[in-house]
Amino acid sequence: MSSTDAVKSAPKRPYSPNAVSRGTNAVIHAIFILCTIACVFPLALVIVVSFTDEMSILKHGYQLIPDKLSAMAYHLLLNDATQIVRSYGVSIFVTVAGTALSLLLTAAFAYPISRSGLPYRHAFAFFIFFTMLFNGGLVPWYLVYVKYLHLGNSIWALIIPMLIQPFNVLIMRTFFSTTIPAPLLEAATIDGAGEFKIFRRIVLPLSLPVIATIGLFNTLMYWNDWFMSLVFINDNKTVSVQYLMYKTMLNIQYLTSNVQASQALSQGGGAVQLPSESIRMAMAVVGIGPIILAYPFFQKYFVKGLTIGAVKG
């Protein structure tokens, strides 16, 4: 999509007299095209470097149009993909389980405090809200999980700490209280439906937009998280994709120590060098891949979701 396409496709529609002039419009386009390049360029660079021949990187650095292409880095990565496959497994499990559990718990708390008749509902809302204002800090929080719950190095340490996001609870509560008509709930009660049945059969189906939104927020949060790993994980079993990328950045050896081919390469002759630069960027691409693929879907619903959440909580 270039700016000329957009301008060409438009002239059928008459512009309001308040529209910007053609000149101004062109200037805005020019600014935005530059911004778009700035936003996408580093990603493109990383992808290109991952496909660049190692010698060409060593000679000319990272280039957008490299001298020589090579899929060597991917070849080596996929030669022994055990660690990558395992990390994908960890990340997918954490994301799916985390998102599902988080939605369940968030809805189960947000719905009761959205009911105007519930005694002490403001106190319960404050109970959640207060955690946004004050916290005990990293040390006691860490000790609770590692010393008392013994969750160090456990995959649950990547899930449990992020299950309740106060802001999401408040967004959901606002949605429930503004979009579910109270008379509907009363009618259901009169018809003899229990509270739980009302929640499952009436409230949840009517709340799909907010559930989808919070679900997306959660998915992104869990997939992109590396902090829980940094704090709680210090073995090599429970390494998520993000954490694997982090370790690869620190130490290329971490990834390539498993790769038999690379060992053979480095033992083979002193002159042959491990393509560490392109491998590093290939690892980044392997990690970024799912986000880029899901992006068109994500951003569309994210934009919608942010406007749902914009209702003052």
């Binding site: 301008v7 419009n25 935005f32 936003c39 992109n224 590093r280 990690g287 992006y295 994500f298």
Partner: peptide, 27 residues
Amino acid sequence: LRGRLAAKFYQSAFFLPYFLSAVVVSY
């Protein structure tokens, strides 16, 4: 901006970096 489609496209491009984790940004 006059073209709605172009505006949508730009917005998508500007929003993209927000979806990348700090580890990816470090790369």
